[in-house]
Simulated scan of single mutants.
Amino acid sequence: MQTIGTPFLWLVFAGVTLLALVADFALMRHGGPHKVSFKEAAWWSVGWVALAMSFNAWLWWHTGQRLGAAVGNEIGMEFLTGYLVEKALAVDNIFVFLMLFNYFAVPELQRQRALVIGILGAIVLRAILIFAGALLLQKFHWLLYIFGIFLLATGVKMWRASGQGPDLNSNPVLRWLTAHVPFLRRYYGSALWIGHGTRRKFTPLLIVIVMLGVTDVIFAVDSIPAIFAITTDPFIVLTSNVFAVLGLRAMFFLLQGMADRFHLLPYGLALVLVFIGAKMLLIDVYKLPVLLALAVVAVIIGSTIALSLLRPAPAPAGR
């Protein structure tokens, strides 16, 4: 498996991630369960982006010193492009998370806890998927074409489904949980269950956390092949993924009140998947420069956000 990831680089990445999570949990516990304001979410979002960019700058410098400036520049651009792609696709996660919270009427005070546990699970599951994908691609290069076709099909499907929310009532995981797990119809603070042994019953908060994890796995199946179109180096794939996921909680609270204002963004995300799928299918014919791929993704996302703000969605009938 070809990778720039030396034991030292993996150690630095693990250390930065661990320190960031510890600081995040410590500050969250210090503040206690509370409704996250837009200002607080904005500062946290800026902090997570700054952390990712600082790591990328250090990685660019370190790789340049070790392997040469050209390699350092390429690695820096691959990380930045992968981070932007994952960050953009994470917005779709947030829209579904918001629907889950509204569907289960999760109290504002408990949304932080649910997201924190869900994000930890997402990091572990994505790491497993990324290493499995890297090993498979090393042995079976033709899988890149399968990924490319999958991304094209997913992009087309996302375009057609834009504006339509997922039907949670027909979700097989949710239906199985509600049919087989004894759960209560009310929340008990941040508790996941009440009672012991055969009398144990689970609160809706546990169902929400499970559904958050399932949702992220579904979206990871789309987003991880997308970043493999940028680079097949598992170190770059994993680090850019993890730094994008770390800021997911702050991004949720930042966007939860503005989800309707970005009504055209799903179309932009669909175009990103189609573009990356086409890039992957052409990889053995023409390797698109990483800088150009970054520019295309940035223009698509930026344009759909701008158009969403310039052309607000029509008000629902009856208002």
Results as ranks from 00 to 15, higher is better:
Ile119Ala: 06
Ala229Arg: 00
Ile117Asn: 05
Arg66Asn: 10
Phe253Tyr: 11
Ile94His: 07
Phe55Lys: 06
Ser303Phe: 12
Ala90Asn: 08
Phe13Glu: 10
Leu246His: 05
His141Val: 07
Glu78Val: 01
Gly257Phe: 11
Thr198Gly: 07
His196Leu: 08
Ala26Asp: 12
Pro316Ala: 10
Phe235Asp: 03
Phe228Ser: 01
Lys35Trp: 05
Tyr145Glu: 06
Ala70Glu: 15
Gly268Trp: 02
Lys139Val: 02
Leu51Pro: 02
Glu78Ala: 13
Met53Ser: 05
Leu309Gly: 09
Phe101Cys: 07
Thr17Asp: 01
Val296Arg: 09
Arg311Tyr: 13
Asn56Asp: 14
Arg175Glu: 12
Val22Arg: 07
Phe55Ser: 06
Met211Asp: 04
Asp92Ala: 11
Ala191Arg: 14
Leu307Trp: 11
Trp58Lys: 03
Ala134Arg: 01
Met53Cys: 06
Met77Ile: 05
Thr6Phe: 12
Leu129Phe: 14
Gly31Ile: 10
Val299Leu: 14
Ala41Trp: 08
Val181Asn: 09
Lys287Leu: 14
Gly64Ala: 07
Asp216Thr: 04
Ala122Met: 08
Val16Met: 09
Ile276Gly: 05
Val12Cys: 11
Thr154Glu: 04
Met211Arg: 02
Leu151Val: 04
Phe25Met: 14
Met28Lys: 09
Leu212Val: 11
Thr178Gln: 13
Ala161Tyr: 05
Ile94Ala: 07
Ala259Glu: 13
Ser37Phe: 13
Ala132Lys: 00
Val297Cys: 06
Leu269His: 04
Ala114Lys: 12
Met28Glu: 14
